[in-house]
Design a protein around this nucleic acid. Structure first.
Lengths: 219, 219
DNA sequence: ATTAATTTTTAGACATGCCTAAAAATACTA
DNA sequence: TAGTATTTTTAGGCATGTCTAAAAATTAAT
């Protein structure tokens, strides 16, 4: 139905729309997709002709419902494949993004339905991001950043705000993973670093940079 | 490494080489890939430049070891994905070809290794075709056509020579599947049809056209 | 062995998606 | 508000992979 490239543009614009709720600039898209503004303009016009987004010259773009649906479906596929790779094939959460970037473009609705069932209808991917439903509904994250939680409040680690390989490997190294229960024992006013008490009774210290990229659910 | 299209050409040429052991003609490739001879010539020259095949104008082509390896790797990926779709996702054997045609181009050696392990290192795909090893070895089929088996020889149905959806659905309808034990009770000299006795003690009649597309292993 | 039929290649064109360089529009600043 | 800087678009081109139509080579046939 839609090309590899078209889906990637729609997904990028969707992603940008989640943060800024205004229309999305040509340059922002070019930056995210590591391409040039001129190329973006070309593709935007093509997508506008197909009614996948609204476009006014020099005014940026906004996805239509149709375009948003294609983007959300692509996100759904990406996240389901990530669950498959981690849960079934035992990939690390730092290894799955690039492969899922390819798999998300496989075109078969039945395949995704069956994959979803096989995985047990997961609600979140291995990084804690919500998986859109078959109908295209996606719930807003109910998680909060660890650095905004007050001391002694028990929480469960439930997601990450930074998806980079480096960050995920760092979490592996210090022993933090999704599902880890912990609470903030102590907050350092000087540098924002935290002393975290894990449910293993062990305590670790993490920097503010780490804390502000960890999503938790209060319990 | 190689494009979607390049892999498809190499796979097609490999397939044609299995039957005819001479060099493969431009038209044969065009027919198999449902494209035009002129397009084939273009691609052939490109693949020859990359040392994936030997090409002399007007003399047809032959895969190099390098080209054969790419083709076999693609076949391996295709067949492993077919096993995944049937065994894990519960697709019918008549439904998996088109999806595997897409999945076979996903580029990640680690993914295929892990998929192979997850599936339990299968030796054959859902149609009974052998799965090449990681090293690129592929064993020649040890199966024989049902219409060449002599009466009363017990056999196990082990593969198909016709992979079309129509044929596979026909086999489903008459209750034949891989693993079915049977023997030929009676052979009709007039039209080549066979009376097959299944291990369920039930007997069915199948036409010669069906029999000559069923691969069996004598037991 | 020469003509006829077929196969294959070349030539020129088109669509997709990308690029650079230059022009146009918008945004910022003094 | 004029002038400068930035963003965006246009213009023209390139690579991939496709096509049709015509030319060249090969194969078949009388």
């Amino acid at each position: 139905m839609y090309s590899f490239t078209e889906e990637n543009y729609l997904k990028a614009i969707y992603k940008l729309s989640e943060n800024n709720r205004q229309s999305i600039s040509t340059n922002a898209i070019a930056d995210l997709l590591q391409t040039k503004a001129a190329s973006v303009t070309d593709m935007i016009r093509k997508l506008a002709e197909k009614k996948l987004l609204k476009y006014e010259k020099y005014k940026g773009v906004e996805l239509t419902e149709k375009g948003k649906r294609v983007a959300v479906d692509t996100v759904r596929k990406h996240r389901l494949w990530e669950v498959f790779l981690c849960d079934k094939l035992k990939f690390g959460w730092d290894e799955v993004h690039d492969i899922a970037e390819q798999l998300e473009h496989i075109n078969s609705a039945l395949l995704i339905d069956k994959l979803d069932a096989f995985l047990g209808y997961p609600s979140h991917d291995p990084h804690g991001d919500p998986i859109p439903t078959k109908n295209g509904d996606i719930k807003k994250s109910e998680f909060v950043l660890l650095n905004t939680v007050k001391a002694l409040q028990p929480v469960i680690m439930s997601g990450v705000a930074d998806h980079s390989v480096l960050f995920l490997q760092h979490l592996d190294k210090i022993g933090l993973r999704l599902g880890t229960s912990c609470l903030i024992e102590e907050m350092n006013a000087y540098d924002g670093s935290l002393k975290l008490k894990l449910n293993s009774k062990q305590s670790i210290s993490i920097s503010k940079d780490v804390a502000k990229n960890i999503l938790v659910k209060p319990v």
